[in-house]
Design a protein around this nucleic acid. Structure first.
Lengths: 240, 240
DNA sequence: TTCGACCATCAACCTATGTTAGTCCCCGAC
DNA sequence: GTCGGGGACTAACATAGGTTGATGGTCGAA
């Protein structure tokens, strides 16, 4: 199976063949977006819904003084703005990290999806997972010390990318720079750098050249109290 | 109109009379829950969906070391766990702040609501508003300094309670203690205390005896860069 | 009316993290 | 092959906010 949307939605429950076929039609044609490019900006509205097919993107909000908070990452199979036709304007922006492949899906197609019970439930599940993730991030940023906060972020990437089949062995590609990690965790870039070195010295994880290698999965998860329940990936094979 | 659910959902769009009638049936019978009581705990699941009719409650998550993060407040008209039958277990807990009146709604009733297009859209809108709020909180906790962070929280309460008709003039009841504010903003109780005094000295806002008085609405909102767009209350009368 | 609990407040001190201002390394463009 | 730029990394210093522990209101219950 190479339809990333199907793959993602079937983490909730298997889909009828007819639904899978609809998803196969929806997933084309693909458009290329360069790295570090805004897909949609706060205040904008739009008729289409965008879906990430390949690459990494993120949602973010800015403060007037220029400070930035990343509020979510978007992986292949994630929708950018499923809600544009309910809400009048975006309350945040979305940008690519790496070069991405994106499809634009018409409003009518979305309605078609939502008309199918199995798909509607799967999309609802995806929404709930996103909410659960934001709650966990709030806990992370609000209560965990810097080292654990960063470790937790890497645990989450590990589990989500693994579910998407994007982890080979014990390492995965992650096109983030340290400043992205800083803006995700509410820390300064300098402190992120210090922490990454400490995590490396502790033998928990290595980050070099946009490649993350997790030496000690259990150790890392235990260190930051990572509990994947909030991702609701009940169909997930246990961690190796 | 005294149906808090109708009132809330009609912030999105007016509802057909038949839908309003369904909501009137749903909103009974009411059950009393004392203050500072868990409504549902992380890991639990449940067949019913709870709806807050009166009082204040909050969603929260705990760390193993006992630290607590409040991730959302629930006002009259808010559902506690609309998703229990999609997800297998709660990924967070919910507790009351003040004594609350709550209704338990059966799964079948929820399905009935979702079957009505106008209600389904209104519920979807409510979900999206909750998501938008969490993104704003992430920005708040991750990027704003303590004073602005607390000011922002009070701005949000002001606007939401005002939309719910729970603000009289320039002040409103808010049963939170300083420790709640601390656990909401990711600050220590002591620092919250310091900040509240500074906000008072600055003539922006006074908090005493669970009563908040906002002296200078515009000043307060400007001070913390509050922009209510994320609440998507397009039908809201402008701030007095 | 008194008592006890709970909550607000205060002071002294501490430290995790931020800031500034660099250097260095690597890679891709020409 | 060299140049330029982005990103990683360092060091020295600054501070916002945390911690601890004590004091003092206020209010409801008996």
């Amino acid at each position: 199976m190479d339809n990333v949307l199907t793959r993602k939605l079937e983490h909730f429950a298997p889909l009828p063949a007819a639904d899978r076929q609809l998803l196969d039609e929806i997933v084309l044609p693909v458009r290329d977006v360069p790295a570090r490019t805004d897909l949609i900006r706060e205040g904008q509205s739009s008729d289409n819904v965008r879906l990430i097919i390949q690459g990494l993107a993120y949602r973010y909000k800015n403060l007037a003084n220029g400070r930035r908070q990343v509020v979510a990452y978007l992986l292949p199979g994630d929708f950018c703005d499923l809600h544009v036709h309910i809400l009048k304007a975006m309350d945040h922006s979305i940008a690519t990290v790496s070069a991405c492949k994106v499809v634009d899906i018409s409003r009518h197609r979305i309605a078609e999806m939502i008309g199918r019970p199995a798909l509607a439930r799967a999309l609802w599940w995806a929404t709930l997972v996103d909410e659960g993730t934001m709650r966990e991030w709030l806990l992370n940023v609000g209560q965990r010390p810097a080292l654990e906060r960063i470790a937790h972020l890497f645990c989450e990437f590990y589990v989500k990318l693994r579910a998407a089949g994007m982890v080979t062995g014990t390492s995965f590609a992650l096109p983030l720079i340290q400043e992205d990690i800083a803006d995700t965790t509410g820390l300064s870039m300098v402190h992120v750098n210090r922490c990454l070195q400490q995590l490396r010295e502790a033998g928990l994880l290595k980050v070099r050249h946009r490649l993350v290698e997790i030496n000690d999965t259990d150790g890392l998860m235990h260190f930051c109290g990572f509990n994947p329940n909030y991702l609701h990936l009940d169909n997930l094979e246990p961690v190796a």
